[in-house]
Simulated scan of single mutants.
Amino acid sequence: MALIIEDGTGKPDADSYSTAAELVSYAARYGVTIPAGEPAQEALLRRAALAMDGMNWKGCRAKGDQALAWPRRGVNIDGENKPSDYIPARIQYGQMALAGEIHTDDIDPIETRKGAVIRERVEGAVDTQYATITNTSRRLLPAAPDRPSRTQFADYLQKRGLFAIRA
């Protein structure tokens, strides 16, 4: 089933901001690993769009019945109010980056991941020890906040960067 691309009109059945062809082009330019087949690429874009819906974006949806989080109204970036039919290119690039991150998480089993370096000893041969990643659910860990998609989305999220919560 072909993707229904959001074009800024607030489609009630849209399921992506980018096409599979755009994802292939993005992956080639940035060295991102993605599945070979178009159906798998489209599924990956749908998963990325669903993950994006859970993010806390600036403004509010332009239409109550639109399927995706964008377009939005009430978005002010660098002192400029964006129109309610505007979908920033960084939202599209961010979706493609997130799709690549999701695919990497899919193909990288938890058993092969390494934690932070907790000891490194140099005397002749290098001896490096990694922290154990504790994950009792056996599910993959979520994408790290320093991944490219978060960089693309930074200006459009309610909160960007690090912030402290006082307990």
Rank of each mutant, 00 (worst) to 15 (best):
N81V: 12
N56G: 01
L157D: 09
S137G: 02
D108S: 15
G31N: 08
L45E: 02
I107T: 11
N56Q: 11
Q95P: 00
T112M: 12
G31R: 04
R29N: 14
Y93W: 14
Q95H: 00
I77V: 15
P39M: 05
M55D: 02
P109Q: 09
A21G: 04
A67C: 01
D127H: 15
P142Y: 06
G94I: 02
R150V: 09
R72Q: 06
A48C: 03
R113H: 09
H103V: 01
S18M: 05
D15F: 06
D7Y: 08
T19N: 02
G124Y: 06
E123M: 12
R61P: 03
A21E: 11
Y156P: 04
Y130T: 04
L98G: 00
D78H: 13
A131T: 03
A27T: 05
A27L: 04
T33L: 13
W70H: 08
V122R: 15
G64K: 09
S84I: 01
P109E: 09
Q158W: 09
P109C: 07
T128D: 00
A164V: 15
P142W: 07
E38I: 12
G161I: 05
A97I: 00
K58N: 07
E42F: 04
T19P: 00
Q95F: 01
H103D: 05
G161Y: 07
N76L: 12
F153L: 04
R166L: 11
P145W: 10
A116H: 11
V24G: 02
G37K: 14
D78F: 12
R139V: 08
P39E: 10
E120T: 10
A27E: 01
A69I: 00
Y30W: 15
M1A: 13
R138N: 13
A69F: 05
